[in-house]
Nucleic acid binder design. Structure first.
Lengths: 356, 356
DNA sequence: TTGAGTTAGTGACACATGTCAGTAAAGCTG
DNA sequence: CAGCTTTACTGACATGTGTCACTAACTCAA
């Protein structure tokens, strides 16, 4: 009934009739020592029989490093974080790592303390999922972690500081080009862009992709079709209303996130504009909003961003002093009824599934 | 440049001119030993000056328990998980705990191993976020954790096994009653329910709430208005189509999740039915789908479920042998345009915010 | 036979902590 | 001032590892 005493390597040693050192050598596969296969097998089988598991705390205490990876972000925003963390766990599981997570609020104090607590567990690395942009205080703090504590840090979804930190971002330019190319390919020429400003690297890249696509297609850029300067919903609502109020309004909108696309559709509904006939809409991120709302969108495959980040941490852990690297993740256009017409169906996209 | 050597309690002892034992007593506030305030202060200030932090690994190794709480779930489903984990972190932060997270796939092996890894770190407790229902294998495994390893377990969002496990669920009956009451209050009498079957406790409770609300209002239950028997999208699509194809079809639908509500709206659109005039729709969960799609929905406040679960774990940790408890979390009806009409606005609900 | 070299393995330390048992000094009491 | 109690503190052990340095036994060529 009571707690089962955990078996230690000493227990295994006793049962196998060897010293604890031998057990350790066998279990860690130390190459320099030559242990005959007979005893090696004997140790391994008794370890298995006793259900031995290495004590992660003791191991970490001794070695100064645990198989833990810390992940944190400020606040929840649609399903992006969660998909990233899912990808992070994928690789961590395969590599024998565990994931320590923190959801910070807006207070600086909490961030400081949360990072310290991760370091208290001697994590192998820290992944910061960035929404928006980092403050100077945050940058300094991460620099301390990286330089002084020598714990590798990787940023996800922000390449603004790619000179100071390793970062993993999805290829927003390629994704945006695919999105706008799609609109062009179904006949649109006046395509509006809900600009999200210069603050974030994602907003800059998505706008850049928009311009690039038009250029590639030989469509002259009309600057009056690019409006807005932040990701805030209020600003997006304003931009969309003003775009659709133009005398020769755009026939399609490329939005930098699904929230904006969703707002656009609601505004269109208010204006009695039919989607996609009067107005085609493309969002970005392939969130549940897009999946369930039938919005064409660009999937950033956040899981893959998470996987890439973990792999980078593990690389840095083996060869610490490589130069900073920016890694691009894939994107994928998911076409739905907001650009394609036709009746509603359940297919397409990977963002969401039914839950209870 | 190099790694800063971490300060140990021995360093503090040396600097303060006392023994390590004294440092330990002061820092842990051991009551039995009488340490004069002078030395106590001296120890505390030198600890602060040196930036001393207790080594969580050594502490955990010695005490057999770490300030870690393990959380795991099978797969991502809209934003529910993430909001729960956010709430979990809230309390964990306040109480000095860290959160270990695992996103399992569908393989049994991964679950077994993931739990074992958490136990390898001597976690204080394990929280299982249930989507759908538990298999017998899973139940057995959690029982082992709880009984043999004596690590408290709490289930979130499933009360089916409330005799064996502590669980935290949102009050689905109350939430459903509020939702259906709302439909009744705006004049609906023929209200359909997209039934999600008997497999999950949430589905049962939401259906029960539907019946209860009708009964309270004195509306006779028409069983032909209750269709479907699972949470799968295909089944829901069938049920909704069949409900809306009835000769005297319902004027309102109460759906057991937002995915179904979203499907209902798309089906209505295909049928040229106006929402909410021809058909009012209420979802459940207040996910991003609802928030951005203007769906009236019931917010389960998943953060609160997470908070309650952590508090329960901490309680169980202090007084282990209390009997199993089922804890109910609050719900909140969020009215939007799918039942209320009026132009689109940005207010209402807490599920989502704009992100980059 | 002897010295060198190999094989197979072990003892002991260090990591940072919590805590039990012990102890020297001081204070108090009769 | 002996004897007891209290104060203020410490030494030593235990937790489970990884690993360095060391050794006893054995092999083998000269």
């Amino acid at each position: 009934m009571g707690r089962i005493a955990k078996v230690s390597s000493a227990d295994v040693a006793r049962a196998a009739g060897v010293s604890r050192t031998t057990v350790s050598y066998v279990l860690n596969g130390v190459a320099e020592t030559n242990i005959p296969t007979a005893t090696r097998e004997r140790v391994l089988t008794t370890a298995r029989q006793l259900g031995y598991r290495v004590n992660s705390l003791a191991k970490g205490l001794k070695s100064g490093r645990t198989a833990l990876i810390g992940v944190y972000c400020r606040v929840r925003e649609d399903t992006f974080h969660e998909r990233v963390v899912h990808g992070i766990y994928d690789i961590c599981y395969d590599e024998g790592y565990n994931v320590l997570i923190a959801y910070l609020g807006t207070t600086e104090l909490i961030e400081e303390e949360s990072i310290r607590r991760m370091l208290d567990y001697n994590v192998t690395g820290i992944i910061r999922i960035v929404i928006g942009s980092l403050t100077n205080v945050e940058i300094d703090r991460l620099n301390v972690v990286q330089e002084r504590e020598e714990v590798p840090c990787v940023l996800i979804d922000d390449s603004t500081h790619n000179d100071q930190f390793d970062c993993v971002v999805s290829d927003d330019i390629a994704g945006s080009i695919a999105a706008v190319n799609h609109l062009i390919s179904i006949g649109h020429k006046r395509i509006g862009h809900v600009n999200a400003g210069d603050q974030t690297s994602t907003a800059r890249a998505r706008r850049e992709g928009y311009y690039a696509s038009l250029r590639l297609a030989g469509i002259k850029v009309d600057e009056s079709l690019v409006r807005g300067n932040s990701y805030t919903a209020a600003d997006q609502l304003d931009s969309i209303r003003s775009l659709l109020a133009m005398p020769n309004r755009p026939t399609a909108l490329f939005c930098p996130n699904d929230a904006a696309a969703s707002i656009a559709r609601e505004v269109a509904r208010d204006m009695r504009l039919s989607v996609p006939d009067d107005l085609a809409i493309v969002g970005y991120g392939d969130s549940d909003i897009a999946h369930y709302g039938g919005l064409t969108s660009v999937d950033q495959e956040p899981e893959e961003l998470g996987r890439l980040a973990v792999r980078r941490i593990l690389d840095l852990n083996e060869t610490p002093h490589t130069s900073r690297k920016q890694i691009l993740g894939p994107t994928r256009l998911v076409v739905r009824s907001s650009t394609a017409g036709g009746p509603f169906s359940l297919t397409g996209g990977s963002a969401g599934k039914a839950r209870d």
